[in-house]
C-alpha cells in the first residue's frame, strides 16, 4: 500500500548562501494493508520529515513514494489531493482549521469531501466525538478555542472519520490520559482490522508495542555526510 524506494530529501536555503542541508538519503520502506509500522529514532532523526514526504507535504528530491498506485514524489497537485481525499489520511499533532467552523463540521468534513450525505457524515462525526469524550455541548463551537488535549482529540476524530486505506499517525497518543489513549489505540486497531496500512510515530512505548507490527529506525536513512 505504501512503498518508498530510495527516497532522499534535502533543503536548499537560498537566502542563506544557498546552503544545502541533506536530511534523508536512501529511504526505503514498504507497508502492506493491515500492517502498522512504527518509526523510531532519536529526536531530529527525520521521523516527521519522512511522514511529510509520504503525505506530499515535503517534496522528495529523488526516489519514488508510491501510495496506492500514485507516486507522490512526481504527482500533480490534483492527484495528490485526490489521494488525500480518498486514500491517505494524516493525523498530525496540530489542528489547523478555518476559524468559526463548528467542531462537528470539522470532523465531518473529510466525509463530506468524499461525497457522504450530510446526515450520515454528522452521525459518524458525533459518534467519534462521543467516543473521544468531547462533551456534546462543545460540538457546535469552533475547536480553535479548545484546550490542547481537546484539540488533539478533535484532530484524531477528524483523521478517523473517513476509512482511509492508508494512515499516517504523528504521535496520536501524546499527552492523552489513559482512558482516551485506550480509545485511540482501539481506533487504530480497528483501522488495522479493516485493512488500513499505517505508518506511525509513537513516543509512548506501551502504545507502540500494542499496535505496531514492526519498527523502522529512521537513523538508517540519515545522510552519510551528516552522520
Amino acid at each position: 500500500m505504501i512503498e518508498l524506494n530510495n527516497v532522499s530529501k534535502s533543503f536548499t536555503l537560498h537566502n542563506q548562501g544557498s546552503a544545502v542541508i541533506p536530511v534523508m538519503e536512501g529511504a526505503s520502506l514498504s507497508v502492506k494493508p493491515s500492517e502498522c509500522v512504527g518509526l523510531i529514532g532519536a529526536s531530529g532523526a527525520g521521523k516527521s520529515t519522512l511522514m511529510r514526504v509520504i503525505y506530499g507535504n515535503y517534496l522528495a528530491a529523488s526516489g519514488s513514494v508510491m501510495v496506492g498506485g500514485t507516486d507522490v514524489a512526481t504527482a500533480e497537485p490534483r492527484e495528490i489531493l485526490e489521494l488525500r481525499r480518498h486514500t491517505l489520511g494524516y493525523v498530525s499533532q496540530f489542528l489547523r482549521v478555518v476559524p468559526r467552523v463548528a467542531t462537528l463540521d470539522v470532523v465531518a468534513e473529510p466525509l463530506l469531501a468524499v461525497g457522504t450525505p450530510v446526515n450520515a457524515a454528522r452521525d459518524k462525526a458525533a459518534s467519534l466525538l462521543a467516543q473521544l469524550n468531547i462533551p456534546e455541548r462543545l460540538w457546535s463551537l469552533s475547536p480553535t478555542t479548545f484546550s490542547g488535549g481537546e484539540q488533539q482529540r478533535v484532530n484524531i476524530a477528524r483523521g478517523f472519520a473517513h476509512d482511509y486505506p492508508a494512515l499516517l499517525l504523528d504521535e496520536p497518543t501524546a499527552s492523552l490520559d489513559a482512558q482516551n489513549r485506550a480509545t485511540v489505540l482501539e481506533l487504530i486497531a480497528g483501522a488495522k482490522a479493516r485493512g488500513a496500512a499505517i505508518v506511525g510515530i509513537f513516543h509512548d512505548e506501551t502504545a507502540r508495542e500494542q499496535v505496531c507490527d514492526r519498527f523502522i529506525n529512521v537513523s538508517a536513512f540519515s545522510p552519510r555526510s551528516a552522520a
Binding site: T12, H14, N15, S18, R52, G56, N57, L59, P77, L81
Partner: peptide, 21 residues
C-alpha cells in the same frame, strides 16, 4: 507552483522561501 501546503512548508525557490519566512 505546486500543492499549497507543499509550497508553503517546503518552498523550493529562494523567493518563496523569503516570502514564507
Amino acid at each position: 507552483s505546486g500543492l499549497t501546503d507543499q509550497v508553503l512548508d517546503d518552498p523550493q525557490h529562494g523567493y518563496t522561501q523569503l516570502l514564507v519566512s
